[in-house]
Simulated assay, not measured.
Amino acid sequence: MSTDYQQAREALGARLRELRVSGPGGRLTGTALAQQLGWPRSKISKLENGRQTATPEDLRAWAEATGLPEACEELENRLRGFESHIRSWRRQLAAGHRPVQENWSAEVSRSTVIHAWEQAVVPGMLQTAEYARHVFTRSAELQNSPRDTESAVRARVKGQDWLYESGRKFRALVWEAALHARICPPSVLAAQLDRLTGVIGMDTVELGIIPLGAPLKIPTANGFWVLDERLVITEDWHAELWLDDADSLALYLRAWKTLRESAAFGTDAQNLIRSVRRTLTA
C-alpha cells in the first residue's frame, strides 16, 4: 500500500475521531459508538487509526451517529480522493465483474492510443469470449466475488469494438509465458492463440511478443496499461492502482519502451505464437 494512500487513510481516521469526540451530543466513547452502530469495538479503532478503509455506508452511519450528518459529504469526498488511486478488488467486485468491465470500457472509449504490457495473461482487449470466461471464473473464485461471468464476458467483448474504430491504436506487449499459461483448457487456449495470430496486421493493433529466452533490460514485473499518456492502470492481487501524475506516466512509458526492445513483431511474432500453438496438439 502506498505511503500517500496510508497517510490519507490515517487523515480520514483522525477526522472520524474528531467527529466522535466533538459531536453536538457530547463526546462519544468508542464503545458507545460501536454499540450504537452495531459494530465490533475493534472496527471503530481500526477506522480511526487508518488500519481499515471505510465504505461510503460506514461514513454515512458514522456521521449520523455522531449527530453530524452534514459531515457526510466531506467524508465521502475524502474517501473518493484517495480511492481514485488505489481501487481494492474487494470493493470493485462487490457487485461482480460486469460493472468493472463497463467502467473500464468507458475509460478506454476516451482513449486514442493505449500502451499495454501483460506478462501472465492475454490482454483483455484481445481475449476470445471463452478465454475471458475462464479468466473471470478464476478471478471470482479467488476474490470470493459474485459470479456474473456471462454478463462480464459480454461487456469485455463489447469493449473490444474499440479496436475497429478508425484512428485508434492498441500497442500491446505480451510475454511468451502468457501464451503457455493454462488458465483454461488447451482447446480454449489454442483458439485464443489463433486469435492473436489473426490480429497481427490489423492497422489498429501493434502486438509484440517477448520470447522467454530474450534478454531483458528490466524485470517483467506486473502488467500495466497507459491510456493516452494521461492515465496508468496497473494491478496486483488486492487492488488496481490508477496513476495520473506526470512522473508516473513517464516512468511507465519508459518501462514499456524498454520492454519493447526485447519483443518480436510481425511474422516473427506470428511464428512464435504458432510454435506455442503446436505444443497444444503435439
Rank of each mutant, 00 (worst) to 15 (best):
M1P: 02
D4A: 13
D4I: 11
Y5I: 02
G13N: 01
G13W: 01
R15W: 10
E18Y: 13
R20H: 04
V21Q: 15
G25R: 10
R27N: 09
R27C: 00
L28K: 08
A32Y: 09
P40G: 07
S45L: 03
K46H: 13
G50Q: 04
A54I: 07
E57I: 14
R60Q: 12
A61L: 11
T66E: 11
E73N: 13
E76G: 11
E83M: 05
I86G: 12
R87P: 06
A95C: 12
V100Y: 05
E107N: 12
R110M: 13
R110H: 15
H115E: 14
E118G: 08
E130F: 10
Y131F: 05
T137F: 12
R147I: 13
T149I: 07
E150C: 01
E150T: 10
A152Y: 01
R154E: 11
R154Q: 14
A155R: 03
R156D: 03
V157P: 03
L163N: 03
L173E: 02
L173P: 03
L179F: 05
H180N: 07
P186K: 03
L189H: 13
R195W: 07
I200R: 03
L212Q: 06
G213S: 07
L216M: 00
I218F: 09
A221Y: 08
D228G: 00
E229L: 11
E229S: 14
R230M: 11
L231E: 04
L231S: 05
S248P: 03
R254S: 13
W256D: 02
T258I: 08
T258W: 05
L259M: 09
R260D: 14
Q270M: 08
I273V: 02
V276T: 08
T281Q: 14
